[in-house]
Design a protein around this nucleic acid. Structure first.
Length: 475
RNA sequence: CGGGGUGUAGCGCAGUUGGUCAGCGCGCAUGGUUUGGGACCAUGAGGCCGCCGGUUCGAAUCCGGCCACCCCGACCA
């Protein structure tokens, strides 16, 4: 576990050792275990709150979709066909029309929307669904890329292009960016995807890019302005107030269990996970310490009291009464990333105090009076949440570079110990982008929303460029 | 789908000139001593050595075929 030099191995070991997930009998699929699922549930709750707060409603659409639907949007087919799983038989019967397992639901939802939208008065239509999807990827990694994964996908319909664009940005920034930064303590860069990296069938794709502990980028959420592409293919039309029949504008946006991988890779350290308190399945763990029976009794009384007051204060707390030595329990919970450890031993029972130890700094032990525990733990959780964010941002800043020429660019991308984000001008030519990828493995993660003034020379070809891009190796 | 690798106890591995080669560490069970940073002792449970076939008196070990998984690429949230 201490070996983070082999980051991929460190990551995988951590996922399994901490019991977040386990391998399944089916290649590329994983079992999300209770500890991992509890984390996901907390993420779902906080993200769902934001989705609803911005006016969206949840619905559910079917897992199976008729083959013909996939073929309706040309770019969409091309993009997803290679990784689609098919159902061709039910029992002994061959199906008249094969069904595919949704890799995403634009098609079936578009089909339904066409029936539900008649008038401009029906708009906007703002629905979201929480679902599983299947993409038959060649190469998988737990949470980061699994054959089946869990996510939410929002699908909206609008009257005007401006409205659709506003929705796309609202989701990107007010929903996803806010969620990632405030709840997961993961700083992200919001930006526009290049043409070659955009969603199959979209007009424009925006994403949030986060830097992992090895300097690679993880696309953590995406928001697509689909323009009228899907509306045209699926016949989503409405009669406007001027009496004219118009084609609608749609968006879609998604965030998945991949974000769990982000939490691991952004915050994890050589001792294991570091759960952001806001989503930690267990925010504080009480480790009772005793030798003799009478000590245990005195300790138990204080543990019960502290546990009660923490629970009353809304803290997710657990007492670890297992017959193990304290040191064993410390490392056990550190590995699992519990933000705060509370040690309660005979000395503490005697003095009416407890010892708080933040996961972010084990040497920072704090002795707290029993009456003040709830307040102090709550404050400490907030402090840890902030510390994790600050450290992640600091790390990203330290590994973000500006490349003035291609040689410098290549040097940066080749140095494993300094690997990170490289910002540079880009001419906008897909050929240039492809060559950079072929030569350095780095891709354009996004064109950040915040663009510098003026323009410069493309880092690859030197032609005049007005686009400022973030390049990185990506997951 | 190309290149490389590995299949032996729940996990990690050793054993592969054919015959005390069914073993080690961790974990697990029971009992005891321990307990403020990953304890120790004792006693146990647990494996058709990936699968199928062949060679042989005898195969984890040699031969042939198959399967699975992992790593590195191309594809991707």
């Amino acid at each position: 576990m201490a070996d983070r030099d082999d980051f991929a191995q460190w990551y995988q070991d951590l996922v399994y050792k901490t019991e977040l997930a386990d391998e399944s009998p089916v290649r590329g699929c994983m079992v999300i275990r209770p500890y991992g699922y509890a984390l996901w549930e907390n993420m779902v709750r906080l993200l769902d709150d934001r989705i609803k707060a911005t006016g969206h409603e949840n619905a559910y659409f079917p897992l199976f979709i008729p083959r013909s639907f996939l073929e309706r949007e040309a770019e969409h087919v091309e993009g997803f066909a290679p990784e689609v799983a098919w159902v061709t038989r039910a029992g002994k019967e061959e199906l008249a029309e094969p069904l595919f397992v949704r890799p995403t639901s634009e098609t079936v939802i578009g089909h339904m929307y066409a029936q539900w939208v008649q008038s401009y008065r029906d708009l906007p239509l703002l629905y979201n669904q929480w679902a599983n999807v299947v993409r038959w990827e060649k190469r998988t990694r737990p949470f980061l890329r699994t054959t089946e994964f869990l996510w939410q996908e929002g699908h909206t319909v609008h009257r005007t292009e401006d409205e659709a664009q506003a929705e796309t940005m609202l989701i990107l920034q007010q929903v996803y960016q806010d969620f990632l930064e405030k709840e997961l303590a993961i700083p992200v860069i919001a930006g526009l995807k290049s043409e070659s990296e955009k969603f199959a069938g979209a007009l424009r794709t925006y994403s949030l890019e986060a830097m992992m502990g090895d300097g690679k980028a993880l696309q953590s959420a995406t928001s697509h302005n689909l323009g009228q592409n899907f509306a045209r293919s699926f016949d989503i039309k409405f009669q406007d107030s001027d009496g004219e029949v118009k084609i609608a504008w749609t968006t879609s946006w998604g965030a998945s269990t991949r974000m769990v991988g982000g939490v691991i890779m952004v915050h994890g350290d050589t001792s294991g996970l570091r759960m952001p308190p806001r989503v930690a399945p267990i925010q504080a763990v009480i480790v009772p310490i005793w030798r003799k029976d009478e000590e245990r009794e005195a300790v138990a009384t204080l543990v019960a009291e502290v546990e009660g007051s923490l629970r009353a204060a809304g803290v997710r707390v657990k007492s670890d009464w297992r017959e193990e030595r304290p040191g064993f329990k410390y490392s056990h919970w550190e590995l699992r990333g519990v933000p705060v450890r509370i040690e309660i031993g005979p000395r503490d029972a005697q003095n009416g105090q407890v010892v708080l130890v933040p996961r972010t700094d084990r040497s920072d032990k704090r002795t707290v009076a029993r009456e003040a525990v709830a307040e102090r733990v709550s404050a400490l959780l907030a402090e840890i949440q902030q510390t994790l964010y600050d450290q992640a941002l600091e790390f990203r800043k330290g590994r973000t570079y500006t490349a003035n020429d291609y040689e410098e660019f290549q040097t940066l991308m080749a140095d494993r110990d300094r690997l990170g984000f490289v910002e540079a001008w880009w001419c906008g030519d897909a050929a240039c982008e492809a060559q950079i990828k072929a030569e350095t493995q780095a891709t354009i993660r996004c064109l950040p929303l915040e663009q510098p003034e003026g323009n410069g020379a493309c880092v690859h070809c030197g032609r005049p460029s007005s686009a400022w891009a973030v390049f990185a190796k990506a997951y």
